[in-house]
Design a protein around this nucleic acid. Structure first.
Lengths: 238, 238
DNA sequence: CGACAGCTGTCGGGAACCTGTCGATCGGCT
DNA sequence: AGCCGATCGACAGGTTCCCGACAGCTGTCG
């Protein structure tokens, strides 16, 4: 966790009245080595915030009883400045966007992709670590991805990726050199509940490969197929 | 923080009886790498000023008990020359005049835009640094913005921007080369509580682009759209 | 006090772009 | 050789973005 300027595990509190969603987030976070607890009501959230002392909170805005804003209010009033990432329904507060990203907080529209949520959480943590924060750049071979500028470089050249391509590549880079199955990619990069169990992943990888080929100096492929298992980003020789 | 002639973090004291507002300002300041503390009453403010030794103070004029002027008077009487920026309510026209003639260094009307407040604070800090005072000029490519003279130059030519255009461009320049989402731009450049939709940002960007195009020597765009994410100001080649 | 001018935000049409489905083809493995 | 997963061109529908037109507001000037 040194990338956040910490030695200890990140402590995450997830607040959502839908247990499967809360658990989904908590599970992914634990898998990344974080400490995560879940709350299904505002009251529980406030109690846990006091006991657990999270470093960051994921907070659904539509809660029964005290709603998300109420929880935030009470959190702040009790003196804790813990950063918050909100979850909102698409047709609810979604376009009443104003105010949610102020002060370093962020928000995400449901249904979201877990990798995207994790990425936002990492960004918020990085930022709130203070002035010693530094850019997050993922590198494999001559390929680099700057998560702040969104710049993806392949050697000298820059490539322009669509949002989906960007997310898939980020995921593969982040997991490199571990092989990821198509199911894992689908589950992490696409929104939960996405139906199309088709060959979308293959398609996006194919498009990525073409863009990588067009900008390649060496001609050596970076995205490798592991037949029967999935994909991995790895430098030729390694 | 060397831009203010300091090595250490700027120390900010925020005094407002409305906790969400005080926290909003403190959070944004911390996000910029400052040290910030909040006080909700005049008494608390005086106590904290003594302990925390702020470099600058944001002071709401309408406080229960000792009001803003009272706090300032007592601060001065205790010998501190710390610069103060006042916050006043919109309808308090009388306050405006009084605020400036009573020893404040600047003032801002509520509801304000967080970026504007931060800009004022930076200016006051720079000025109070005395002889070491230096201009603040933001530059990207052949575009430059002088925050003191408000002069914006694109190559040889000058451009005339409306207040909103100026603020959006300043924000993008300041964050360059990081990509900013429309929500972030909206939340930082517009007043807190603004309910508008995020395509006002598109509109202002569109107007900015036209003005930049009209004055462009190279024809290369400076404001780039990162589809699905937001906008960024960046020189063509980089 | 009325006319005017500049600024800001809303609306909506149209263009550009992105995404997933289908299906023909390819290539590795047994 | 034959099977089966993988690859990728083409297309249609959907989304995002851009910007012209217009209306409300505010401050200014005669």
């Amino acid at each position: 966790m040194t990338q956040y300027g910490r030695v200890e595990k990140v402590r995450l509190l997830v607040v959502d009245d839908d247990p499967p969603i809360a658990d989904l987030v908590a599970t992914v976070a634990r898998y990344e080595g974080w400490d995560a607890v879940t709350a299904n009501t505002g009251e529980e959230a406030l109690r846990l915030a006091g006991e657990f002392h999270p470093d960051i909170v994921v907070l659904d805005l539509m809660l029964p009883g005290v709603d998300g804003f109420g929880v935030l209010d009470r959190l702040r009033r009790s003196g804790t400045m813990v950063p918050v990432v909100f979850l909102t329904a698409r047709d609810g507060v979604a376009d009443r966007v104003a105010g949610l990203t102020r002060g370093g907080d962020d928000y995400l529209v449901k249904p979201f992709a877990v990798e995207e949520l994790m990425a936002r959480l990492r960004t918020v943590l990085r930022r709130s670590a203070g002035p010693n924060f530094q850019r997050s750049v993922l590198r494999v071979g001559d390929l680099s991805m700057d998560e702040d500028t969104h710049e993806v470089r392949h050697g000298e050249k820059r490539l322009t990726l669509t949002p989906t391509e960007y997310e898939v590549l980020r995921f593969l880079l982040r997991k490199s050199p571990t092989v990821m199955t198509k199911a894992q990619i689908l589950d992490h990069v696409w929104e939960y509940g996405f139906g199309g169990r088709s060959n979308v992943v293959e398609l996006v990888v194919s498009r990525l490969r073409r863009k990588l080929d067009e900008t390649s100096d060496t001609g050596a492929p970076l995205i490798h197929t592991v037949r029967g298992f999935g994909y991995v980003v790895r430098q030729a020789g390694e």
